[in-house]
Design a protein around this nucleic acid. Sequence first.
DNA 1: AATGAATGAGTGTTCATTCAT
DNA 2: TATGAATGAACACTCATTCAT
Lengths: 187, 187, 187, 187
Amino acid sequence: MGNREKIVDAALHSFTHKGFHQTSMRDIAQAAGVSVGNLYNHFAGKDALIGEIALLENAFFTEFAARLVEGKHRPRQALSDFFTAYHVFVSSPDSVQLATEIVAEVARNATLAEKFDANQQQLTEALVQVIVLAQRAGEIAAALNPHELAQLILDVIESQALRQAIFPRKAPTVANHLLEQLIFTQA
Amino acid sequence: MGNREKIVDAALHSFTHKGFHQTSMRDIAQAAGVSVGNLYNHFAGKDALIGEIALLENAFFTEFAARLVEGKHRPRQALSDFFTAYHVFVSSPDSVQLATEIVAEVARNATLAEKFDANQQQLTEALVQVIVLAQRAGEIAAALNPHELAQLILDVIESQALRQAIFPRKAPTVANHLLEQLIFTQA
Amino acid sequence: MGNREKIVDAALHSFTHKGFHQTSMRDIAQAAGVSVGNLYNHFAGKDALIGEIALLENAFFTEFAARLVEGKHRPRQALSDFFTAYHVFVSSPDSVQLATEIVAEVARNATLAEKFDANQQQLTEALVQVIVLAQRAGEIAAALNPHELAQLILDVIESQALRQAIFPRKAPTVANHLLEQLIFTQA
Amino acid sequence: MGNREKIVDAALHSFTHKGFHQTSMRDIAQAAGVSVGNLYNHFAGKDALIGEIALLENAFFTEFAARLVEGKHRPRQALSDFFTAYHVFVSSPDSVQLATEIVAEVARNATLAEKFDANQQQLTEALVQVIVLAQRAGEIAAALNPHELAQLILDVIESQALRQAIFPRKAPTVANHLLEQLIFTQA
DNA sequence: AATGAATGAGTGTTCATTCAT
DNA sequence: TATGAATGAACACTCATTCAT
């Protein structure tokens, strides 16, 4: 593993567990087993490193999008599967912690926001595609705006993950049951 | 206005626009027109100040809950009105910025999470109350779990506000149209 | 007990256990159950309080001197008794801790040194008096300079107390046996 | 001279003349001609620096011990010479000021006390060695406990130095005359 | 690409002291 | 006397970044 990757890994871990602004370049260098100075041979500065990490989810979004489209000949099933898989992905405590950091950062940094948005777009569009097919199949009400619905789906899954990670509750709800009730037409 | 209030105001403003960890105690003191040392006569430290700010929304939650319950004899209308009002409240850029900071903080601070959760609870329970009435009135499908639905409603409104504030989009959607389509039974 | 006494007590305790410069005026006020501002009604400032404490041993020195002179008709016994009593007095850990603080302070503050010296003088002179009588009685070699001997006696007892308090050793020596061997003529 | 040495020198000087707790890290950095931050590249913190200084006398103790043992074939002379040399060494005002600081610190810091004790041990043991030889030669009474005597000797010399430095007296006594009178057997 | 000493502004916090009440 | 809010300089320490090697 090259030093650059070691640094990215170390930064990911530190940022996740301590937050962007609670993590120092020294922390990262130490965790990566690399000298402080060397960090700057690979990244222009802390902000560049934050940017790199913030956009790391790229690959995952692409993968989810691909899998969705793959299953589009059975749209309802594809959506159901996606709900489950995405929920699992987004529910890991590490994922949640990092996500909150990224959102706070993105909210304050327009450049970052733009890139971040572009990433998400891929997944949203794949969702839209499958929703439209489900509507044609009569599995989702035709009156619903597919773009808005896609966005709502992602929001609901992500919010639920966030809440369950942060507020450890007595009875965690069955993940996406309600969502499916609301979205899919009843037999 | 007492100095304590001046400090809270200044902290609220600075935290909102720069983030908790990008704001120094000096920043706050200066913005409040107060000496640095005096900050510590009113708050035990920065964390205490962050906690105070993080829990400031208390009042608003209570107010929304009250208004909801007030209108419960016409549950559908009450919910609709709440959707609109809550969306407006939660959509102000300041509110969004601060909320992202708070969430990131809460995700890393169990004590804070607990208090924060307790606050939110009030609003959720008011929502549940009105949802149940709407179900009895046949305006919401009886099969939906009221607690989960209440939570989903808040999530959707908040997520939408967040997204619109962060990603300035071409066509901002009509706020809660989709939500109402999904939730309310069709005539 | 008046507030002034409460303050002195609190200062004595805090200075002893934390050192002059590690103790804040707040510490003292709190320990005394008094407001910070009130400290300044009773003492001009921290230095004045340090001075007060540093010279507190006054009374004890006077008492020891008095008892020594009282027993001077049996000089050897009086000296022996003094050795024991002074050793006990000076050996308490609190006494040692405070003494080291005072010495460090006195070493840097000529005014304080002068007052401190004056206090000690009383005891030294009482010792000299009894030593001279012991010499006349043939119990101490006449060749020894009484002033120097008095000083040496105090030094040895104090140093021993210091060492035993700071370096907890395996076998604490029988306190003043050696001192008596050296000083008193052998039968 | 490396920066580390410059820092140690500056700390030694500042600590001696102002005391540990009256000296700030900035003082030291400035006196060393070094940036504040760089202090922490060389020492973990102020305490580490205090520790380093407190144990600096190591070398001197070792040297005195060596010289003592060197002269042990003429024990009385060796002791006499040591008295004089040690008195000179320990009498410099700087030495006294620093010593009072160290003692106060050592009295409050068990870890430091231990290390400090170990240092002193070397010298005490060399002294014991020579005392025993002097006793065999009949120059010191055989009845005296050599360990206790060694300790007493160091105490007396150090106390005397302390007193002369702090209380500038009319007639400074001839340094170790009395000590020799007490210790050595008379022809 | 790699090191780690060096920088100096910046951090949260504490301090002795003052002062209006 | 007594209070405790108010002051602002000072404190130990950390920071992102640079740079000679």
